[in-house]
């Protein structure tokens, strides 16, 4: 698609298992291909690992593990997208990693592509800000702030620490 005044840049992310979603272009800082990961016990199945990035310890979120709800065979190619998020505008910007099945793809999205999530993709609703159609596939735009928030953790576990 050719960039025009009504389109915005975004990253199209492939989480494997046929799961695709997008985030804003400014929400992806870097892509790492061979980070050293550390598993942390007593953590959710979808976020069991951390790694060190610029002296910070960042969580690695595995959306396919969350949505498919079972342990997935580790991907052969380890791609980590370093994402930026803010829980809300008064909170500081934080970093976290998304485990991806392949390199993110830079795309342009226009207002005309906006559409609703179909019923068979309802599982995206808790984290989707909106969605758009691309090549006849509906792509949700992920709310990273919510994904890494106290609110989401409380939703998953019924209490916030």
């Amino acid at each position: 698609m050719i960039e025009d005044a009504k389109s915005s840049r975004a990253w199209l992310l492939d989480f494997g298992e046929g799961l695709q979603a997008a985030i804003g272009y400014h929400e992806m800082l870097q892509v790492l291909l061979s980070a050293k990961l550390f598993e942390v016990p007593c953590t959710p199945q979808y976020c069991r690992e951390v790694f060190i990035f610029q002296n910070d310890i960042l969580p690695v979120f595995d959306l396919s593990s969350l949505l498919v709800r079972e342990k997935i065979t580790p991907l052969m190619d380890q791609v980590l997208g370093i994402a930026l998020y803010q829980e809300n505008p008064s909170h500081p910007i934080r970093y976290a990693a998304l485990r991806l099945a392949s390199m993110p793809q830079s795309i342009f999205v226009s207002d005309e592509q906006a559409c609703d999530l179909p019923a068979d993709q309802d599982y995206w609703k808790p984290f989707a800000l909106s969605s758009f159609s691309r090549d006849e596939v509906v792509i949700p735009i992920i709310d990273l702030g919510y994904l890494f928030s106290e609110e989401f953790n409380a939703f998953k576990y019924g209490e916030s620490d």
Binding site: V40, P41, C42, T43, P44, C47, R48, V50, D56, I57, L58, P59, F61, A96, L147, F148, S149, E150, F152, N153, Y157, G158, E159, S160, D161
Partner: peptide
């Protein structure tokens, strides 16, 4: 550093 919020579970001692 604090355990990231997204990694917390009710029974984790970490």
């Amino acid at each position: 550093q604090d355990l990231p919020v997204v990694m917390k579970t009710p029974d984790s001692p970490i």
